[in-house]
């Protein structure tokens, strides 16, 4: 239980890390084994053509449903993190509202195959071309690029767990009521992540590289909001009537 810094012991970091890793394993939507089994199940040529022939509204709705489903698992991830539930309700809502999509994007790298640039979507893997009908090629290709770059860091499940938590419990969100409390927790998570990454990676800069991806995560979320606003201008009834209520609450 030696002290690493004032008020932080190795024992406490380990408890925080184990709690976060457990939460991640319980709420990650697909286990590593399930993903392994699905690995080379790709959508067929006919299935991809079927996605491409959908109307823009229908595919947007399908994607909104999948994103919302993933977000529900992220909410549960947060709820099982002891430190997160000790924050005030205002900050819990704020952190989830602003960070849930970023966490989904981090988690996405688990379900991304960098060997053929495919992502797990509705039960099988498919490439970017599957999403053509959305009409936001820039966003889709940026998301795929991000997933590929995250995969190249070869993060373990533990590292993905801790990095997801660090992205969620972020002091960069405006209007936090207790920013110092959030900062203390985030620092401990990064300490724990650093400790684990030093053991697992030859590259001393692995953590710095990972932190360096955070601006891209924020940019992807901004781009998503912009695309949604543009889509809603053209198809307000689709969004109002057919999109999941949680998706509208978070992004509208």
């Amino acid at each position: 239980d030696s002290q690493l810094a004032p008020g932080v012991s190795m024992g406490e970091l380990d408890r925080i890390a184990q709690n976060i890793i457990k939460s991640h394993l319980e709420t990650c939507q697909y286990t590593a084994e399930e993903l392994q089994q699905l690995a080379w199940q790709t959508h067929s040529y006919e299935e991809v053509k079927m996605y491409q022939s959908k109307s823009r509204e229908v595919l947007w709705q399908q994607c909104a449903i999948q994103i919302t489903h993933a977000i529900q698992y992220v909410v549960e991830f947060a709820k099982r993190i002891t430190g997160f539930m000790e924050l005030c309700q205002n900050d819990q809502i704020l952190l989830l509202k602003s960070g849930c999509l970023e966490v989904v994007l981090v988690r996405m790298c688990r379900a991304f195959n960098p060997l053929n640039n495919t992502v797990l979507f509705e039960g099988k893997y498919g490439g970017m071309q599957m999403f053509k009908a959305l009409g936001c090629d820039d966003l889709v290709s940026a998301v795929f690029d991000f997933a590929k770059s995250l995969c190249s860091l070869q993060l373990t499940e533990e590292e993905i767990a801790l990095f997801s938590a660090a992205v969620l419990i972020s002091t960069d969100r405006p209007w936090l009521m207790e920013p110092r409390k959030v900062q203390k927790l985030q620092e401990k998570i990064y300490f724990a992540l650093q400790h684990i990454m030093q053991k697992n990676h030859m590259d001393e800069d692995a953590l710095a590289k990972l932190i360096g991806r955070i601006p891209t995560l924020a940019a992807l979320c901004t781009l998503h909001t912009e695309e949604l606003q543009a889509f809603q201008q053209l198809h307000p009834e689709t969004v109002n009537v057919l999109f999941p209520p949680l998706y509208k609450e978070l992004f509208n």
Partner: peptide, 17 residues
């Protein structure tokens, strides 16, 4: 914030699913 995020607030309040 709670008023504008009823669903999120409810998810946070509900017992673990």
């Amino acid at each position: 914030l709670k008023e504008k995020h009823k669903i999120l607030h409810r998810l946070l309040q509900n017992s673990t699913s």
